[in-house]
Design a protein around this nucleic acid. Structure first.
Lengths: 341, 341
DNA sequence: ATGAAAGCGCTAACAA
DNA sequence: TTGTTAGCGCTTTCAT
């Protein structure tokens, strides 16, 4: 038998298709009795409205698009999970897009998604979320979007983030309190990146508070990726005056630090403390478990979609939501070795 | 200005909307000149066809749905990535669904997705892909689907998989060749699970070939999850006659073995060899890197969508694709300690 | 509170 | 090779 349509429901319930449509859309104007009767026949004949038809008919879709690029899997997946869950609450669906291009081609790619899909809104994850050109283009199209991003771009678009600067400073202060004085920092963004690096800034701020001048040999960049962090860490940890602690701007890079430490015969945390950032899955499965900062990724995905579905992600007047972070104690950090104090 | 429609293109190009539609759908019946002219005006006015309208108009959508449940992130993400990429090649979009229910409710949930979205096909990942009830229901609906699953279910639906049994046997043989005789095995599926556990079967087969009887104390289950593996591993590795090697049915559980080994003061691989399975991201970022078996997850996602888009995923006559696997050498395995041989 | 009917943007016979 | 026109399944005025 064919899939039932709204006509089948109407006929079976003895009402017009308009009434069925009203029930489907929770129109308060329908009499409770009618509603119940329609609802009953809907389940009875197993009717389920066709999404595409609803979209074309109403001019607005029930899609939310999640965009990412070159993803660090532990970053993107929890966000996606939170987004899917929030979508479901409102009967929306999530469409995921792995963007490939950069620059103008990226803008074009994203606008293509917008025009074809006509989603209720877009969730932009890093690094897409800090692209001024992209945000500009979406604003010009008047498309709702939420940026999951720490930096401001000083614009009125909706944003979900947490205070990375303060969180990073807290971690560095904790290492300082444990007696560490030579603390290496492995940044995610390369120095001179157009966007400010809040994690790095927080770290440096805490150092400055303690009266410690940054040492160029103790700063490196791993681009947030495990593999790319190996070499910079070999260099940093191989120095004669090596740091007694390394603070990595995400957990994947901290995992790399554990590997390099083992390679160099350094025990963690006795000889070297390693701190991560994000409290991703990685932090829990490496040995020793990482001391890190919990970034609420799942909630961020949830909140981002929430903003969209509540209509609070208008590009010219977007709301901002700031979420809490939290220190997570692992076994990868300890007091600095006595002789280095 | 409003988003241009097919009418705007037709008017600007001086043709009918039917012709524009034909160009959009690569109808070979259009004269090359006309096609070019239409294409030119399409880019000129920045027209992009509305997906929903195309779906309602044609009765078939341009969606592929990826279903998962309680996902092991490193398993699901590469599959999703491969699926997204294959979708894009044919102008399709991927919709992801985190299923929540089980039993009848699950079937209902999935049929809801099918009816609403009307996707070209579904990609079912583990553990959904081994649910007879679900496959049965989809077959009844005549919905194309591809199962990413090792087991046969002895049915005619499309499937993408690799030979887990042989791969697992190869890993065990390799451990045997290194002199190990007491080899622990941490299974993903609990004993007595309705579906056959190919990895476990392969391991036992290799043991039998070597004339070794399975030892109940050396078999445990971690349900493919890191956390759930900790306790069973503590028990297994804490025995007086502990194994000299553990083979875990996925990398996440092998990471747990590394943690438990450290906890018990066992050096890996000197005191204990640890082998994983999947060659997921986890295998590369733990210390030491895992010896494991490469499961081509990305390709599996790609192939699954390929089957759908080529129309080779009909539930009553689905094609099967078997992909190659490969041993991956890490630093987590070594020869058995001399005194145990 | 409900129904009739005109869209929504596109596809697909059927003609020409 | 192209245009005309009737759908697709739903939403949404506008009446009643």
């Amino acid at each position: 038998m064919k899939k039932p349509t709204i006509y089948d429901v109407a006929k079976a319930a003895g009402v017009s298709i308009a009434t069925v449509s009203r029930v489907l859309n929770d129109d308060p104007a329908v009499k409770p009795q009618t509603r119940d009767s329609v609802l009953a026949t809907i389940t009875a004949i197993g009717y389920r409205p066709n999404l595409s038809a609803r979209s074309t008919g109403s001019g607005r879709s029930r899609w939310v698009a999640l965009l990412y690029q070159n993803p660090v899997i532990h970053y993107i997946h929890p966000i996606q999970q939170g987004a899917v869950e929030r979508c479901r609450q409102d009967g929306h669906l999530l469409s995921v897009h792995a963007c490939q291009h950069t620059g103008d081609a990226l803008v074009d790619e994203v606008l293509g998604i917008v025009d074809q899909l006509q989603p209720r809104g877009l969730v932009l994850t890093l690094p897409l979320s800090i692209s001024p050109a992209l945000c500009e283009a979406l604003r010009a199209r008047d498309t709702p979007f939420v940026r999951i991003a720490p930096q401001g771009l000083d614009d009125p678009s909706a944003r979900v983030y947490f205070d990375e600067n303060t969180a990073a400073a807290a971690m560095t202060r904790q290492l300082l309190a444990a007696g560490h004085r030579r603390i290496g920092f492995l940044a995610g963004l390369p120095e001179g990146h157009p966007q400010p690096d809040e994690r790095r800034a927080g770290h440096l701020r805490a150092l400055a508070e303690a009266g410690i001048r940054p040492n160029a040999g103790l700063l490196a960049c791993g681009s947030f990726h495990f593999e790319e962090s190996i070499e910079p860490l070999r260099t940093m940890l191989g120095r004669r005056q090596r740091p007694t602690a390394v603070f990595c701007a995400n957990d994947d890079m901290a995992a790399a630090a554990l590997q390099v430490a083992a390679e160099l015969g350094l025990r963690v945390p006795q000889d070297l403390s390693v701190a991560g950032f994000d409290d991703s899955y990685v932090a829990r499965i490496v040995t020793p478990r990482l001391t890190t900062v919990r970034q609420p990724l799942h909630e961020m995905g949830w909140e981002a979609v929430d903003l969209i579905l509540r209509g609070q992600a208008q590009p010219v007047m977007g709301q901002q939501r700031i979420l809490p972070w939290q220190m997570v104690a692992g076994q990868s950090t300890a007091d600095a070795p006595q002789d280095t104090r």
